[in-house]
Simulated assay, not measured.
Amino acid sequence: MIEDIRAAGDEHDGKAERTPVWRAGSVSLAALDMDDAELLHDWRSDPVAAHHMGIWPRALSALRERVELDIDNDNRDDFLVLTADRTPVGHIALTGQNLADGTAEVELLLAPGHRGQGHATAALDALVDLAFGELPMYRLTAETHTDNTPALAVLARSGFTREGTSRAACLHRGRRHDVAVFALLRPEWERLTRPRAWDAGTVTP
């Protein structure tokens, strides 16, 4: 996450018509498409994103192939995060879905020009509501560097509990980084008093 659970990126000028499939509060989610690869490539090339995600930029062609594989993967669901005017400001995904055990992982990438505006929390809440409200998930997990203060705050605001630290789990820029491990269980989500995505109102096109 980067603001985020792997969150970051550059702003994107394009506002191609996208159809939200899940609406909640200040943001909506639209299914990721092959045409979004260039947008994701720009976001992932941001140095802040690369640092917090522990990655280096990949070729656009390679990312296109990755996006195509992810779209066809039944064990994950990928979405663009859209603002009220349908500007894409991030990417969020529910990955590693195991319907038998009811487990999945959350990933979030937010464009730098839109950090600090509450979009990360809104997007995470929306995805959590989708996982528990429409899918038979029982446990969601998320990981981020222990020094990624904005991401730690977003996870806490969305009700995730820090379960521990994977020490020296990530090698980046010549040094080892600790990774914070978070989780949210269905009973904990049920106890949250915030409005659910389906009660929070829709995003005005």
Rank of each mutant, 00 (worst) to 15 (best):
residue 96 G to D: 12
residue 135 L to T: 05
residue 21 V to A: 07
residue 79 F to K: 01
residue 204 T to V: 12
residue 182 F to W: 10
residue 94 L to I: 04
residue 110 L to Q: 05
residue 166 S to M: 15
residue 74 D to E: 14
residue 79 F to L: 02
residue 27 V to F: 05
residue 116 G to I: 00
residue 16 A to P: 08
residue 201 G to E: 01
residue 205 P to E: 15
residue 166 S to H: 11
residue 202 T to F: 09
residue 171 L to I: 07
residue 203 V to N: 07
residue 23 R to N: 10
residue 46 D to T: 06
residue 82 L to R: 02
residue 72 D to S: 11
residue 41 H to G: 00
residue 43 W to R: 00
residue 78 D to C: 10
residue 144 T to S: 15
residue 158 S to E: 06
residue 92 I to A: 03
residue 81 V to E: 04
residue 1 M to V: 09
residue 144 T to E: 09
residue 99 L to G: 07
residue 147 D to R: 08
residue 158 S to N: 10
residue 71 I to H: 04
residue 73 N to T: 12
residue 189 W to E: 00
residue 199 D to I: 04
residue 44 R to W: 11
residue 82 L to M: 05
residue 190 E to C: 08
residue 158 S to H: 06
residue 101 D to E: 12
residue 203 V to L: 13
residue 99 L to P: 05
residue 154 V to D: 01
residue 4 D to V: 07
residue 186 R to V: 12
residue 40 L to W: 04
residue 198 W to V: 11
residue 145 H to C: 06
residue 195 P to I: 04
residue 53 M to T: 06
residue 153 A to C: 05
residue 59 A to L: 12
residue 19 T to P: 03
residue 149 T to W: 14
residue 73 N to D: 15
residue 39 L to M: 15
residue 107 E to I: 07
residue 155 L to F: 06
residue 87 T to V: 10
residue 2 I to N: 11
residue 104 A to I: 00
residue 205 P to N: 10
residue 173 R to H: 11
residue 80 L to Q: 01
residue 145 H to A: 09
residue 6 R to F: 11
residue 196 R to W: 09
residue 24 A to F: 11
residue 170 C to K: 14
residue 74 D to S: 13
residue 94 L to K: 02
residue 63 L to V: 06
residue 38 E to G: 15
residue 77 D to Y: 12
residue 138 Y to Q: 13
residue 61 S to P: 12
residue 71 I to W: 02
residue 9 G to V: 00
residue 39 L to H: 07
residue 188 E to H: 08
residue 24 A to Y: 12
residue 92 I to S: 00
residue 203 V to G: 12
residue 67 V to T: 04
residue 166 S to T: 13
residue 179 V to E: 10
residue 29 L to S: 02
residue 196 R to A: 08
residue 181 V to C: 10
residue 146 T to D: 11
residue 85 D to H: 07
residue 22 W to F: 15
residue 76 R to F: 09
residue 76 R to E: 15
residue 202 T to D: 13
residue 63 L to I: 04
residue 32 L to W: 01
residue 158 S to T: 15
residue 156 A to C: 08
residue 199 D to R: 11
residue 118 G to L: 01
residue 53 M to S: 14
residue 114 H to C: 05
residue 189 W to F: 12
residue 106 V to R: 00
residue 12 H to C: 08
residue 60 L to M: 06
residue 49 A to Q: 10
residue 69 L to A: 14
residue 163 E to R: 15
residue 46 D to F: 06
residue 166 S to I: 14
residue 170 C to W: 11
residue 28 S to R: 02
residue 26 S to D: 14
residue 90 G to E: 02
residue 48 V to P: 07
residue 106 V to Y: 01
residue 118 G to E: 00
residue 100 A to S: 13
residue 47 P to E: 06
residue 26 S to L: 09
residue 70 D to V: 11
residue 67 V to I: 09
residue 74 D to V: 09
residue 80 L to W: 06
residue 50 A to R: 13
residue 93 A to P: 03
residue 140 L to C: 04
residue 25 G to F: 03
residue 59 A to R: 11
residue 179 V to W: 06
residue 192 L to N: 06
residue 82 L to P: 00
residue 75 N to L: 14
residue 174 G to H: 04
residue 5 I to W: 10
residue 64 R to K: 12
residue 35 D to Y: 10
residue 149 T to C: 09
residue 189 W to L: 01
residue 47 P to N: 05
residue 131 A to G: 04
residue 2 I to E: 08
residue 51 H to F: 13
residue 131 A to K: 00
residue 6 R to L: 14
